[in-house]
């Protein structure tokens, strides 16, 4: 079992595996995206209160979910790298950061574009919006930390500590709308009783969420491959791979 895990986690094996998996996730995300966009922009009816402006939900909510999901992936991978010195875990953590920052930026920007017509303001300092902004700062801090160290192992260790400390922010973001009275409304999908969104609007949302997830995996795998090559550039398997490509 453990040898099998080690084999999976070997950079060479992961490099080959990710090359094979990337097209699958790319196509899955394209198809899910097309279905989700058609469902969300064409099939779903306008909302009884918010009219067509509610369609921003199909970008905003998947981005916000991904901003949390990617952070947890980054912190967990960082933690695994920190404790067990698994090279692939460090690489996954490092490759996730800019994607997570992108999703956080999208969640904030589309939220702002939604808030202006509906709430009447681009921004308020309520607990949900503030904690999501802090998430963006955590990602940017992590990225700055990575580019500051020339030694990748030191960078990975420092980044992992930052990511693990910042993990406290994740439940704060999620529960902020319940713990404090915020301008942002409460949860729609994840509350314990039935989701309070009509089926015709919910299905495109779930499709978009899956599309974003596949997109993340696919781009993560591409980025991880570059990281592996840079990390392992002096190993025999990379030299073999390069000579096979150039001749």
């Amino acid at each position: 079992m453990f040898t099998r895990f080690n084999q999976f986690a070997s950079p060479k094996h992961f490099y080959d595996l990710s090359a094979r998996l990337t097209p699958w996730f790319t196509w899955a995300s394209i198809l899910l995206l097309l279905a989700g966009l058609y469902g969300g922009l064409v099939l779903a009816p306008a909302d009884y209160q918010q009219g067509d402006s509610f369609r921003i939900i199909y970008i905003h909510v998947p981005s916000a979910w991904m901003s949390l999901f990617v952070y947890v992936v980054m912190a967990m991978a960082g933690g695994i790298g920190l404790i067990w010195h698994v090279k692939i875990a460090d690489i996954i953590a490092r490759s996730s950061a800019s994607l997570g920052a992108s999703f956080t930026f999208l969640a904030l920007a589309t939220g702002s574009l939604w808030g202006k017509p509906m709430w009447g303001t681009w921004w308020v300092w309520d607990a949900r919006l503030t904690s999501e902004l802090i998430l963006l700062f955590l990602y940017l801090g992590y990225i700055a930390l990575q580019s500051a160290f020339d030694d990748r192992r030191v960078a990975a260790r420092a980044g992992a500590v930052l990511a693990l400390v910042g993990l406290v922010n994740i439940p704060i973001i999620h529960y902020s709308v319940e713990w404090w009275s915020t301008l942002h409304q409460g949860p729609t999908i994840t509350k314990f009783d039935a989701p309070s969104i009509h089926m015709s609007m919910l299905i495109p949302l779930l499709l978009m969420a899956l599309a974003f997830k596949s997109y993340f995996i696919s781009v993560l795998l591409i980025r991880a491959r570059s990281e592996i090559l840079e990390y392992e550039c002096n190993s025999t398997w990379v030299e073999e791979l390069i000579s096979n490509r150039s001749f």
């Binding site: 306008a46 909302d47 009884y48 509610f54 009447g120 409460g186 729609t188 969104i197 009509h198």
Partner: peptide
């Protein structure tokens, strides 16, 4: 300043009716 707070319910107008 007056800001509108919307609820977490989303549905088509016919369903709301």
């Amino acid at each position: 300043e007056v800001l509108a707070k919307h609820d977490e319910n989303y549905m088509p107008p016919e369903v709301a009716d």
